[in-house]
């Protein structure tokens, strides 16, 4: 399966900030329910989050949305700093988090330029009625453990198994992460970057595509699409 390299493209122009991806991710990946206190303490967990920025001066103001998830960097700053190999790179271009190796130094989160890593400060709890809704394919993380977007690795693994068993690659080709599946505007596109026919690999090299914080040199597998503003330089200069 090493001819597969998973990646995602986020079209910022299409994102309406509806947060469906956040909810989909939470129910897929057994993320504990964030209460008020988790937000006020800056300890909420959301493997994908929608950052909102305001553009322009009142009254001509626009809200801009930027979904941020783990960028699955090819040259990930979080990987070499972990003393116990709790995070490493696999042969499918993904940045893997191994929960039961994590000792909780939190160095990886410090070193992540995207704030894509989340720490379990509390032991996660759900109302009892929710117990049957938890995804049996995903480990529930205890307190003291770092977690982050896994590109829905459980779906990838399941599809790979099916493909191997049936000798049919279709199961892999149709694979979607929970966030991409839930996105009503198709702003999130997930797929195999090594397949030149996939939608994601075509969008990946689009002229609109850019990388978050490119100066750090993380070589992410997640890229963003944004309308090219020819006057951006002038606008920035005017400030």
């Amino acid at each position: 399966m090493s001819d597969v390299k998973w990646g995602m493209v986020v079209d910022v122009d299409k994102c309406s900030g509806c947060q469906a991806c956040v909810i989909a991710c939470m129910s897929e990946n057994n993320i504990p329910i964030n209460l008020d206190r988790d937000f006020t303490e800056n300890r909420s967990i959301a493997w994908i989050r929608v950052e909102r920025y305001w553009e322009g001066e009142y009254p001509d103001v626009k809200a801009r949305f930027l979904p941020v998830l783990c960028q699955h960097c090819g040259n990930a700053p979080c990987e070499p700093v972990c003393p116990v190999y709790a995070t490493f790179h696999n042969d499918q271009g993904m940045n893997i988090q191994v929960y039961n190796r994590c000792v909780g130094t939190r160095y990886c989160a410090n070193n992540c330029p995207y704030h894509a890593r989340y720490f379990n400060y509390r032991r996660p709890t759900w109302p009892e009625t929710y117990n049957n809704y938890l995804n049996p394919d995903v480990t529930v993380r205890d307190r003291g453990i770092m977690e982050k977007c896994s590109f829905c690795v459980q779906r990838i693994n399941a599809a790979t198994r099916i493909a191997k068993r049936e000798g049919n690659e279709d199961a892999i080709a149709g694979l979607q992460t929970a966030c991409a599946q839930a996105c009503p505007t198709d702003a999130l596109v997930f797929g195999n970057l090594n397949n030149p026919n996939s939608e994601v690999s075509q969008l990946y090299d689009d002229e609109r595509s850019y990388v978050l914080q490119e100066s750090i040199g993380t070589q992410p597998n997640v890229r963003y699409l944004k309308k090219i503003d020819e006057h951006a330089a002038e606008k920035a200069h005017a400030h």
């Binding site: 070499p80 700093v81 972990c82 003393p83 116990v84 190999y85 190796r101 000792v103 909780g104 130094t105 939190r106 160095y107 307190r143 003291g144």
Partner: peptide
């Protein structure tokens, strides 16, 4: 780290039963 009983995996340069040694790239 908050869970002192786990620290042994990090501090002792030994692979225990996990087959994994500490990552020497990490400060």
């Amino acid at each position: 780290a908050g869970r002192p009983w786990r620290i042994i995996y990090w501090l002792l340069p030994y692979d225990f039963s996990r087959g994994i040694w500490p990552d020497v790239r990490s400060p």
